[in-house]
C-alpha cells in the first residue's frame, strides 16, 4: 500500500483541528447545561466551568414543581394537537392538489404555496386583535390556530410533491374496485406517506415547541404559558438562581434532544427540508 504523503497528513490534521474547535463551540453549551443542573447555587458561584464535585438534585426538584410542569404540559398540548391538525389538513389538501388538475385547484394551490412568503411577524397585530374580538385571547386554543396555519403552506408543498411521485397504478386499481376517494386517501395514500408525514411532523413540531413571539403576545395568564414563555419568566424570577434556570432549559429541551439522539437523520431531514421549502 502506498504511504500517505506528508502534505495529506498535514491537511487531515488541519481538518481535525478545525473540527475539534467547532466541536467545543457547538457541544459545550449542552455539557454546560448538564453539569450545572447538578450544582447547588453556592457551588455554581464557586465553580462555573467544571463538572460538579457533588451531585445536587435540588434544581430538578424545583423544576418538577407544578408551575413548571404546567408550562411543559401546555407546550405539549399545543404542539401535539397543532402537529396532528397540520398533518390532517395539509395531507387532505395535498391529496386533492396531486390528484386533480382543475384550473380552480391549481389556482388554490399557488395561493396556498405563496403563503410561504408571508413572514409570520407581519400578521402578528391582526391575529392578536382578532383573537381578542373572538374571545380566544389568552387561551391555548387561540395559539393553535396561527401555529397550524403558518405550517400549512410548507406542509402542503412537501406532501403534494410526495403524492405526485406515487405510482398512479395503486389508486387506479382501487378506483376500479369501487373505492371512494376518501378510501384511497386513507387506505392507500396515507399508509405509504411515512417519509413526507415525518418531515412535516418534525418540522412543525419543532417550530411549535420552540415558538416564542405569538405565545408572548397571545398568552397572559401564568397557568396558560408555554415552555418558551415559562423559561423566560423563570429566568426573570430566578436571576440569582442560575443553576435552576439552566435545569429548566435542559428539561425543556429534552424532548427534542431525545428524539434527535434516537432518530437523528429524521430530525435533520425534517428541519432542513421544511425550512428549505419555507
Amino acid at each position: 500500500m502506498k504511504k500517505e504523503p506528508v502534505s495529506d497528513k498535514l491537511f487531515k490534521a488541519l481538518i481535525y483541528a478545525f473540527c475539534i474547535v467547532v466541536l467545543i463551540l457547538t457541544g459545550f453549551p449542552l455539557l454546560f447545561l448538564l453539569f450545572n443542573s447538578f450544582k447547588s447555587l453556592p457551588e455554581y458561584m464557586m465553580n462555573i466551568w467544571q463538572p460538579p464535585k457533588k451531585l445536587f438534585f435540588g434544581n430538578y426538584k424545583q423544576v418538577f414543581a407544578p408551575t413548571f410542569l404546567r408550562y411543559f404540559i401546555n407546550s405539549l398540548i399545543v404542539s401535539v394537537s397543532g402537529v396532528s391538525l397540520v398533518i390532517l389538513v395539509s395531507s387532505l389538501m395535498a391529496f386533492v392538489f396531486a390528484k386533480f388538475n382543475f384550473r380552480v385547484t391549481k389556482g388554490i394551490f399557488f395561493l396556498v404555496i405563496a403563503g410561504m412568503m408571508i413572514p409570520i411577524h407581519t400578521t402578528l397585530i391582526p391575529i392578536y386583535s382578532m383573537s381578542i374580538n373572538v374571545g380566544v385571547y389568552d387561551t391555548l386554543f387561540g395559539l393553535i390556530g396561527p401555529y397550524v396555519s403558518f405550517n400549512i403552506p410548507v406542509s402542503v408543498f412537501i406532501m403534494t410533491q410526495f403524492f405526485k411521485e406515487m405510482p398512479k397504478e395503486l389508486d387506479e386499481a382501487a378506483m376500479i374496485d369501487g373505492g371512494s376517494l376518501f378510501l384511497i386517501y386513507r387506505k392507500i395514500v396515507m399508509p405509504l406517506s411515512g417519509p413526507a408525514v415525518s418531515t412535516v411532523g418534525v418540522y412543525s413540531f419543532l417550530t411549535m415547541w420552540n415558538e416564542f413571539v405569538y405565545a408572548l403576545v397571545m398568552i397572559d395568564t401564568r397557568s396558560k404559558k408555554t415552555l418558551s414563555l415559562g423559561i423566560r419568566d423563570f429566568y426573570g424570577f430566578q436571576t440569582i438562581n442560575i443553576p435552576a434556570v439552566l435545569t429548566a432549559i435542559l428539561v425543556g429541551s429534552l424532548p427534542v434532544l431525545t428524539f434527535y439522539f434516537l432518530a437523528q437523520d429524521r430530525v435533520i431531514n425534517g428541519l432542513t427540508q421544511g425550512a428549505l421549502k419555507g
Binding site: 391538525l85 389538513v89 391582526p126 390556530g145 396561527p146 403558518f150
Partner: peptide, 9 residues
Amino acid sequence: FYGVYNLYG
C-alpha cells in the same frame, strides 16, 4: 385556517 390567519391577517 389559511384564509383566516394568513390571508385575512
